[in-house]
Amino acid sequence: MADATPSLALPLIAGGQAQKHATHNEALALLDALVQLTVLDKDRAAPPASPADGDRYLIAAGNPDGAWTGWSGRIARFQDGAWLSLKPQAGWTAYVADEAEPYFFTGSAWTPLRATLTALQNLSRLGIGTGADAENPFAAKLNKALWTALTTAEGGSGDLRYTLNKQASGNVLSLLLQSGFSARAEIGLTGDDELRVKVSPNGGDWFEALRIDRTTGRVAFSGRITSADVPVLTGQVIAGNSGPGAVAAGATRYFTHALVGGHQSEVYAAAGRRGRFRHLRVVTQGAPGAGESWTFTLQNLVTDTALTCTISGAGSNQAADLVNSAVFDADQRWCLKMVSSSGARPTTNILFSLLFEGLD
């Protein structure tokens, strides 16, 4: 019969043994040392000066001194005025009190238990540095985070792709950016499958900054326009020259860039998208003359809009309307109408500019 148990080396009472209580008490003392194993520290290289009876230490130092000499990797327990060495076996765990950290013995070294975890499956909540709850089952409170690809040398592909998925087109899949827990920006698929970027001044009012069509890749800027399908980040300035065709005294003519005609249908241009015209500016080659005038008005098809300005007298050759505006739908057409007073000088090459801002 063996003298001790195979796992914890507890002494066994032999048949006919005298003073059986001594062997029994020794086994109980070992159980007291090993069961629910909690050590005070693992970083000491020598015994403390005044240990209390029952104190336990994990000797992680490679070359411990004093009464612990040669005990590297072992558990030391102070008992009855002396240190007792307990040799661990692979799989033992010990709670290190000063670190509030459980450690695991691999068979050759003690390592933090969490470092040995290779899989966590079907967790309902996970909090890192903070508490997770039902609304946020994964929560992290930290200052930096790193995601790096598994290299080919480690058995990976070297790539890193972060995949997010929503149930259906009508659901939301987005990155919500907050300041002081109040939303300020959102990027993602919000309510459909078009990529959108939105901003908010207060977390309640939202303004869409851009939208990317998933079928064409075209970028639409809300409140902005495109020119030849190229997004323009600011309002588009439409500038032109009426060309060499003269506008005679007392005449009414219509023009866009390089086109002058006697009727709107000869010159007008499509707005192309819903938007607002404003900031009408006109510069002519000379002045209309004393008591005379040239009046310029933006027209929507054949109807005057509120956007208009007039050059008058002998000393001016330019005018502007920076106050009024006119909204056009995408299929509506525009041109400038010029009305020359009866005695005004003929003029050519009228320079003009308009600011157009998209509204969809």
Score class of each variant (00 low, 15 high):
V327C: 00
N171V: 00
H24D: 09
S124C: 04
A326M: 07
R114N: 14
A209M: 14
G315M: 04
Y103D: 09
P346A: 14
G54N: 07
F328V: 02
S179V: 10
A246Q: 11
A90G: 00
R56Y: 02
G358K: 07
L84C: 04
V327K: 04
R125N: 09
G70I: 01
P51D: 09
T310R: 12
G158R: 06
P102W: 10
Q299M: 15
R218S: 03
Q299R: 14
R161Y: 05
P64V: 04
D65V: 11
G15M: 12
T148N: 13
L359K: 07
A139Q: 08
K141H: 10
R74P: 00
G191P: 02
A209R: 14
T252R: 08
P64G: 03
A326H: 04
D331R: 09
G62N: 11
G291W: 03
N136M: 03
F207W: 12
Q299P: 01
R184W: 03
P137Y: 04
A209E: 08
G286M: 07
K42Q: 13
S265Q: 14
L233V: 14
P88S: 03
A319V: 05
V230F: 09
D213C: 09
Q89L: 10
P244N: 10
A52E: 10
D41V: 11
L280E: 06
